[in-house]
Design a protein around this nucleic acid. Structure first.
Length: 596
RNA sequence: GGUCCGUUAGCUCAGCUGGAUAGAGCGCUGCCCUCCGAAGGCAGAGGCCAGAGGUUCGAAUCCUCUACGGACCGCCA
């Protein structure tokens, strides 16, 4: 165990590209051992190594790290996998970091790592504020477009999930080394904002004391009452009794701006700040739509044609009409899509194409759109458009967030827009808070439906992952407060961690070691929920260690009269706290200082 | 008719992009508090990974078909 400090200070990073990422380190080591074997003629050269993985075995009894290198290389090398593994094991064992390397099963190579490796992890977490950050993104420009709700009313629960997901994804990508832009596309160019304007106009008349009726096709929600009143304050009775041609445009702009203010406030209540709001309306008359369509036309992807009627349920008023179509089938779509209606006006799709063309022209290396599940039918055509416009150079990933099912006391909670009983983002945040909302919405992967029970999510018990993770952070805080030794990170980083090398303590350090790798996996897959699950695991390891202190006092963090041991143990849990805080930061959740 | 998503323990869900004996929480069963630390802890039972083929050293994971559930399906936004 004297390895502990000696090995660390002895310089532990000759091979690694990233000295903090144990997995990357060992992978690099495996590669260099393979080089050695090649040089010695034991292995033929030029083998494709891309399928080689280095990961922790599912069963910890197999060791700390395993590689499939021998099995992957066996066939192309025309050698017995076990023979390759044996030679590789010998090479690996020469490295300080590997204490045991043994062949198992069909040719797995299991490694056990020196305790000093794990001590290095703890130390890295304490000394490097960026522990876990990755250079995976290479500073590539990445856009995450999310929310993008129509500016016709407050955000509701469905939007909330998309908002939280998109925001956490953006933070995750930022953490993984991308240059991220968060953007909201304002659908202020279509007929729905005219409907909004007419609805606000009615409220405006109401503010002037008139009786009004909300017919079908208007928005009856109360949230427009203050907008109507504010409009009255602004223009007085100038629009009373006038036809639409006098007020529609002005009221529309006014109302849209009011809605966007409201939406911005809604987002702010969840701690979400967009870098940019992009207006659909601004595309009209700017020539940008024409540009985009013309670009497609030049690639031979635009034509006049008539679509087949949709199969299955045929709309009653269906009749074949000639439209301007985008040949999206060239890029994997099922049918070509109209960009112009039969009357020559743009379809909704056209400005969307222009908007995405704009993203490409702004130089983004990759695009992500976060849509609600009801836009699923839109995915293929949007991908086709971006592929065509960027000559397949800019990848577009579209993440769909599934429905949120609301519960109250275990009872399903019915929403009805008609009856005005739909639940808004604000309702949710006001009731359970931003932190709980955000964390809980990330405890499910985006493409699975999510249950949200107003009572359960605020429950203070270990059944509630939000609480469980927060509690771990707070508990560590409480230990730090009670400690009678210096607990600043610099001092802790100098602790002799061989004093905290019990198997249960090493387990915690090993989980900490997975953090950088997990960040990369989550970032590559655009899956922020992995962060939430990891944090739960880490919290679980920590609580488990804490609980063992009940029976085994030598595992308690504060060891009376033994400063050095106390410091080592605190170093370990402080490292846990650092990682918890980083992870919660990505999710946009405030780490709790104490539980109340 | 088509497209997309889902299907893993009684329930709610993970499963690191193809690895070894498939995991967690709840629920269930059985033990354990004069404790800095029971808003619990430990242990156990519980599985044909929807089904059938295929790909290969190896499949819950990839491909094809089938079944069930959900979302969507000219000019609405």
């Amino acid at each position: 165990m004297t390895l502990w400090s000696g090995v660390i200070h002895g310089g532990f990073k000759p091979h690694g590209t990233d000295p903090m990422n144990v997995f990357a380190d060992i992978r690099t080591l495996v590669m260099s051992c393979l080089d050695t074997l090649e040089a010695a003629g034991t292995l033929p050269g030029g083998l494709n190594r891309s399928a080689i993985t280095v990961e922790p075995p599912r069963d910890a009894a197999h060791g700390d790290m395993a590689t499939n290198a021998a099995m992957v290389l066996a066939k192309p090398a025309k050698m017995n996998p076990r023979a390759i593994a044996e030679s590789l094991a010998v090479e690996l064992a020469k490295d300080d970091r590997i204490t045991v390397a043994e062949v198992a099963g069909p040719g797995f190579l299991n490694m056990r790592l020196a305790d000093g490796v794990w001590a290095g992890v703890v130390k890295a977490a304490l000394t490097d504020p960026g522990y876990g950050r990755s250079t995976l993104g290479q500073n590539k420009k990445m856009m995450v477009e999310y929310v993008s709700a129509n500016p016709t009313g407050p955000l509701h629960v469905g939007h909330t999930r998309g908002a939280v997901f998109g925001d956490a994804l953006a933070s995750l990508l930022d953490y993984a080394g991308y240059d991220v832009t968060r953007e909201y596309y304002i659908n202020d160019g279509g007929a729905q904002v005219d409907v909004l304007a007419r609805s606000v106009y009615l409220r405006y008349l109401e503010a002037h004391g008139q009786e009004v009726a909300f017919e079908d096709g208007t928005y009856p929600g109360d949230y427009l009452i203050p907008v109507g009143e504010a409009l009255k304050d602004k223009v007085g009775d100038a629009y009373v009794g006038k036809g639409e041609q006098f007020w529609l445009e002005d009221v529309r702009d006014y109302a849209t701006e009011a809605m966007m203010d409201m939406i911005r406030d809604d987002l702010a209540s969840l701690g979400i700040r967009m870098d940019n709001f992009y207006s659909e309306k601004g595309l009209y008359g700017s020539g940008r739509i024409e540009d985009a369509i013309q670009t497609l036309d030049q690639k031979g992807l635009i034509y006049r044609g008539t679509l087949e009627p949709p199969k299955g349920k045929l709309p009653e008023d269906w009749e074949p009409r000639e439209q301007t179509l985008f040949k999206s089938t060239e890029y994997g779509d099922d049918v070509d899509r109209p960009v112009q209606k039969s009357d020559g006006a743009w379809t909704y799709f056209a400005p969307d194409i222009a908007y995405h063309y704009d993203k490409v022209e702004r130089g983004f290396d990759a695009l992500i759109d976060v849509f609600g599940a009801d836009h699923g039918g839109y995915v293929k055509r949007m991908k086709a458009a971006v592929a065509a416009l960027s000559d397949e150079k800019v990848p577009l990933d579209i993440k769909l967030t599934q429905l949120v099912k609301l519960y109250k006391n275990g009872e399903p909670f019915k929403m009805s827009k008609r009856a005005g009983t739909f639940v808004t983002l604000r309702d949710v945040v006001d009731q359970v808070g931003s932190d709980v909302t955000r964390f809980h919405m990330l405890t499910r992967k985006n493409d699975a439906p999510l249950d949200f029970d107003f009572d359960k999510v605020t429950e203070q018990s270990k059944d509630n992952p939000v609480f469980y993770v927060q509690y771990a952070h707070a508990r560590i805080n409480s230990v730090l407060r009670k400690a009678e030794v210096p607990v600043d990170d610099a001092t802790l980083a100098g602790a002799d961690l061989s004093l905290a090398a019990h198997e249960a303590e090493l387990k915690v350090a090993k989980t900490l070691a997975e953090w950088p790798r997990l960040v990369e996996i989550a970032a590559k897959g655009h899956e922020p929920h992995r962060i939430a699950f990891y944090l739960y695991d880490l919290a679980s390891d920590f609580h488990g260690l804490w609980n063992r202190g009940n029976d085994d006092t030598s595992l308690r963090f504060l060891q009376e009269g033994d400063k050095a041991t106390t410091q080592a143990k605190i170093a370990l849990i402080r490292a846990v706290q650092v990682v918890l805080a980083s992870g919660l930061g990505i999710l946009g959740v405030t780490p709790a200082e104490e539980m109340r």
